[in-house]
Design a binder for these strands. Sequence first.
DNA 1: CTAGCTTTAGCATCAGGTACTAATAACAGA
DNA 2: TCTGTTATTAGTACCTGATGCTAAAGCTAG
Lengths: 190, 190
Amino acid sequence: MARNTMPKKERQQALVDIINKDPFITDEELSETFNVSIQTIRLDRLELGIPELRERIRSVASENQKKLRSLDAKEVIGEIVDLELGVSGISILETTEDMVFERTQIVRGHYIFAQAESLAIAVIDAKVALTGVANIKYKTPIFAGDKLVAKAKVMRTRGNKYFVWVFTKVRQQEAFRGKFILVTIGEDRR
Amino acid sequence: MARNTMPKKERQQALVDIINKDPFITDEELSETFNVSIQTIRLDRLELGIPELRERIRSVASENQKKLRSLDAKEVIGEIVDLELGVSGISILETTEDMVFERTQIVRGHYIFAQAESLAIAVIDAKVALTGVANIKYKTPIFAGDKLVAKAKVMRTRGNKYFVWVFTKVRQQEAFRGKFILVTIGEDRR
DNA sequence: CTAGCTTTAGCATCAGGTACTAATAACAGA
DNA sequence: TCTGTTATTAGTACCTGATGCTAAAGCTAG
């Protein structure tokens, strides 16, 4: 039956690991995996300051909810602060840590692009599909915390095609520019 | 004291709303806010099929964990299936419901862009910052469920500048193309 | 062999319930 | 007004996954 017991220290380390990996595990299950009594597990948790199952689940639930809320907000890709439909618009995006390349702290291009695209689509007053873009330029690297101010102008419309320019500034400095060609749908497209 | 009771139906509707908003509320707290006994709350939950507090917390915790995991995976923006550093690479992205414009079911351009950008950066063997892009074209609209296959080729290098072309196909049809100009950093940049 | 740490056992208690029974209150229809 | 139905409340036994406490072993090193 070799009730293969482990030294206390080792068991407690393993305990921490297991609970971190699966916070949904009960003391009973733990006692079975370690071949010790439930009381021992409880003592271990006490010593290690690990809360009971229900508290663990509770905190997982609320922490994850926080994370999801912040991601939801991020999905907006910039807040539109001014909008004259069919003419122009302004959008502001506060960049955060999780938009950057870890190694360089530089904001990933697609966030900047996404802000510009969203704004360009917002100024067009119709169901639209983005079909062509040209002349994008990133002028300077953008770092977490920078506030991106994007201005869009509708330059020309031809039938169901819209030519929209977007300029994005960081601290008054131009950081990005893009010319978007948007095609409304609903009508035939080609 | 006007124990202001509410009609049953109304109370149950309000109950659903409250619990949806705050799944962490106990029957006792609910009974206080509605000025009814705990038993009434329990009966209501039974009729409405609402599980007990602990179950609610449990499901919030695990559902949100699932969502977070899928978002994590999404952050990769395409799976790189082939890569010859400094030369070429292939990335596959399965599009999903939450990448599209609700109204049109068409995949938002920045996901396609992000896949291409990520791939372009991956094929360059260095710390890179994206600084210039040109000649992007979206050829056809892409719908949720479409599988995007992006191929990148390094066309030219000049000093710390890399010219990378990315072609993305959906069902053998070209859907996107982009020429990226990447600049490695670490060295001086200008 | 004994002092000290570690482990186990047992029991009372708690929160937040389920499941069930039974009594009472409220109200609508004849 | 009485009556039948629905709604509400009360109360009990039981459940899970714990806490908190006391006490008894088990092991181990000096």
